[in-house]
Design a protein around this nucleic acid. Structure first.
Lengths: 124, 124
DNA sequence: CTGTGTTTTCTACACGTCGTAGAACACAAA
DNA sequence: TTTGTGTTCTACGACGTGTAGAAAACACAG
């Protein structure tokens, strides 16, 4: 529902980019890596705290069965993005006006892709 | 850029719903009205603080010429919504996947409207 | 069963944002 | 110049987020 913080967002990105579930230590390592040379080496507890918060927000789940718990994103990055878009759209009365403007801002290629998608949906 | 708070959002809604610029007092009154019978009668300074913050966020401007400053939204509700949607879309690599899912979630009527909009844009 | 290393949970703090508003200041009209 | 009205300054509590130490839970080697 709410906007993610910087670190929360980075963790989500790492989870989304990973094909399989990760442990807190995996994430700590990848965070250090991702931050380039200036890596700050976060404490594992920091990562765990963030993961707990993301879990509370229903963005990640974990497998508690085996000891190093493994965390995974609940939904795909794309699904989450769509949720955000719909949230933005949420209470607006004139949705069509918004969509019109939105489409006005996308590239020709994307507009073309949209037409195809819409036609596929129609014929389906 | 950031998400608005409850009161900030309500103030923006009032500004968007008003054809002309409003003073802090106008807004205080409308806020009391909008809150129904349980209206809490906010202090004017509260409204002014919120307006100053919204101004800092470039969401409202004011006319300082005449004494009761008059505040107006910088962009329309629709434009702002589009900004939010693009912000959500922002860093996603596979934009098309997002758009596909997004379209999958809208109503048939809206899909129809989208086709029309896209075709208009194409022939223009 | 007991120590020892690993992982997780609890608790905490600093900092930023937001709702809220009093105190102090600016200004125009009487 | 007083007085009322509007604006800015300053502030505080609540909440979210980055950050992590202390403590508890576990699993495995003796």
């Amino acid at each position: 529902m709410a906007t993610l913080g910087e670190l929360e967002r980075t963790v989500m990105d790492l989870l989304w980019d990973s094909p399989d579930a990760l442990t807190a230590n995996d994430l700590r390592d990848r965070l250090a890596q991702a931050e380039g040379e200036a890596g700050k080496e976060l404490a594992v507890t920091t990562v765990l705290t963030v993961l707990a918060r993301l879990e509370k927000k229903h963005l990640v789940t974990r497998e508690r069965s085996n000891r190093p718990h493994r965390y995974r994103a609940v939904m795909s990055r794309e699904e989450h993005t769509v949720d955000l878009m719909n949230e933005a759209l949420g209470t607006v009365l004139d949705r069509e006006a918004v969509l019109t403007r939105f489409i006005g801002g996308i590239s020709a290629d994307e507009a073309q892709a949209l037409r195809r998608i819409l036609n596929d949906a129609q014929s389906a």
